[in-house]
Amino acid sequence: MSDEGSGRDHTDIAMWGAPGSGKTTLLAALSIALSRRPQQDWRIVGGDAPSTDFLIQNTLALSGVGEFPEATKDRNRYRWTLLGPPAGKNGRRRGKPAQVTATRININLMDPPGGSFGDSHHLSTADKSELISSLEKSKGIIFLFDPIREFEKGDAFNYLFAPLSQLASQMLASSDKYPDGKLPHHLAICITKFDELRVLQTASELTLLTTDPDDVHQFPRVPQDDAAQLLQELCSISATGNADIMLNTLTHFFHEDRIKYYVTSSIGFYLDPMRKVFDMADPVNLVPHAPLSSPSAAEPMPSRIRGQVHPINVVEPVLWLGQQVLNEHANGSPAG
């Protein structure tokens, strides 16, 4: 949490995940999801001009023409700020009415081209240092686990273990600040691409799907308490079989009570514009849009979003982390 005008490099929440795990899409969807919240209490703004441009372009692309944000290529560092309702009381200061101060949560995304976390040899020493530094300074981490990528490539562990080891080395080895030997962060593990048929069907087969009675569209959800079970099931079909190690590693390095699991979808499920109710027979919200040389081609073709974007569990992990940051700030205690 940071006050207005405070250091812009301050990081509250860092995002972390393998390339293509949907980090930028999640951020673009976050803007849409916040706009869809009936409370209208939070909004997201860019922390600098490029980040603002990125947010504008990709939010419009996602909601307008239905195109996915381009993966981070040229720039490896984005900063956004979540602006929320004021926290606490606002008094008078030196006889002047106290200004109403919005709550701010800084979100940093660092993802150099080529996928820095897994392929450290592609990463410059400076970038690597900045990356670890960003994680170290953050109080909350959003870790994106892409089950489709894990099923096809099985490299989530690669993108977790190296930076986690470096982070642990930097924070735990040389200091007694964290006597329990655990990293102090709150960790929101987001199982992304819930809208993918394979993920949805797995959740359905495990009878983990529910619907929110207040949701007029009756989109399926996996309750937070069941998300870990879905993650374990998805890890069991990992291409390399390393996904379970990844889970163990996370619980070894972080306090278990500071980890929460979310089954998320940045684009959500397809909603027939006429029926306006989710249909399990037709849930996929993606449609390929480029000519295909052969229908049996193994490589998936680029997709665009088929219908409206209805993000699922995109706001929740961010606000949960934000709340933890707020709590720590209110308690005046450092994380850990």
């Binding site: 399990m280 027979a281 037709d282």
Partner: peptide
């Protein structure tokens, strides 16, 4: 190309 299934399956929309 093949027909569409009545329900979503694999990568083919219904």
């Amino acid at each position: 190309r093949p027909p569409h299934p009545p329900r979503a399956e694999a990568r083919i929309l219904p």
